[in-house]
């Protein structure tokens, strides 16, 4: 069809009305309360079922990660091979040791799922925080100063982008014999910061041409003020969205590495490691695989849903 039917500027009026915002707003006294954009987004979020569901899930997961002992008295590290070897789950025994059954060494799967959450969350959160800070800074530097810095950082991100994330982390982790949570976190962050850097760079470039940035410069504002007062608060939204969504993917990455035997080493409990253990019993004792895998899926899904909800609230174009 021809583009005659496409609304462009013509729909702005309607859009403005729909957004309930200023073009036509307030005869006489303006709306009652100060309403910041953040508060508006929060109001939208709270009404979004996607956010409520994922928020509650994440809250539970965080609680489990922080205090797994609250939910079970069983020890995840030791099992009674004689009594419990590959015991089937007892779904009626909610919150009890044998709820999810036992694994090949007679350890409670319920306890292992609970204790495994901690490592997954630490890696997920840790990587996200690291890449947001480092990638965000790099992106801001490249976007704001442009020129040489931009060329340098952009080429650097290109190089990192060329390395497959998982393969790269496998190579890096292979160099470590003692792979603690922090080593895994560091390795994933080392390879993962470029995505955030790119998003940040784009957002900063858009924002730095805004009139209010020009206005601040005209007042004689310094670089620090312009960056942190004017650009960052307006450029951060897409970064938050990407960071939330990728938190889930970092958890998956950690599990995948553990599954391949290149993730957490030693006695660390990891869903990935348990999934790997479970594959050998998949025919007759699928529960050994299913429960850690389910926990992983639910966690990742919760973060991705949260990211979607946040995007809907923060992105004014989708409103």
């Amino acid at each position: 069809m021809p583009d005659l039917t496409k609304t462009s500027s013509a729909s702005e009026e309607a859009a403005a009305i729909v957004a309930g915002t200023p073009v036509t707003s307030d005869a006489g006294p303006a709306p009652e309360k100060p309403r910041s954009l953040g508060a508006d987004a929060w109001r939208d979020l709270r009404r979004n079922p996607l956010f409520v569901v994922s928020g509650l899930l994440i809250l539970v997961i965080l609680l489990v990660a922080a205090f797994p002992g609250l939910f079970t008295g069983a020890n995840p590290d030791t099992g009674d091979q004689a009594n419990h070897f590959l015991g089937k789950p007892n779904l009626g025994h909610v919150f009890q040791e044998d709820w999810f059954g036992y694994d090949g060494t007679g350890r409670s799967l319920y306890a292992r799922v609970l204790y495994g959450a901690r490592n997954s969350i630490i890696v997920g959160l840790g990587v996200t925080i690291l890449v947001t800070i480092f990638g965000g800074l790099m992106g801001m530097l490249a976007g704001y100063f442009g020129g040489f810095w931009d060329s340098l950082i952009s080429r650097l991100t290109d190089v990192f982008f060329g390395i497959p994330f998982l393969l790269g982390s496998m190579v890096v982790l292979n160099a470590f014999t003692h792979r603690t949570v922090w080593v895994v976190t560091g390795a994933l962050a080392f390879l993962g910061w470029t995505q955030i850097a790119r998003v940040m760079r784009g957002a900063v470039i858009t924002t730095k041409h805004a009139d209010y940035v020009m206005a601040a410069k005209a007042l004689g504002a310094g670089t620090k003020r312009i960056l942190f007062r004017h650009i960052l608060p307006n450029a951060i939204a897409p970064v938050i969205v990407v960071a939330t969504i990728s938190l889930g993917t970092y958890i998956v990455a950690e599990s995948t590495l553990s599954y391949l035997g290149l993730g957490l080493g030693g006695d660390s409990i990891s869903w990935g490691g348990d999934i790997s253990d479970g594959t050998q019993f998949i025919r007759n004792y699928p529960h050994v695989l299913l429960f850690p895998a389910g926990a992983l899926s639910i966690t990742v899904l919760a973060f991705i849903m949260m990211g979607d909800a946040v995007r809907e609230a923060l992105d004014p174009k989708l409103r």
């Binding site: 954009l37 009139d211 209010y212 206005a215 005209a218 007062r229 608060p233 307006n234």
Partner: peptide, 23 residues
């Protein structure tokens, strides 16, 4: 800085010239 204090500007677009995150 002294010059900047004495020469000020009013921008075209009142929708983009005010930082939306500031009161």
């Amino acid at each position: 800085r002294a010059v900047r204090r004495n020469i000020q500007m009013v921008f075209q677009d009142p929708y983009t010239s005010l930082n939306p995150r500031m009161t």
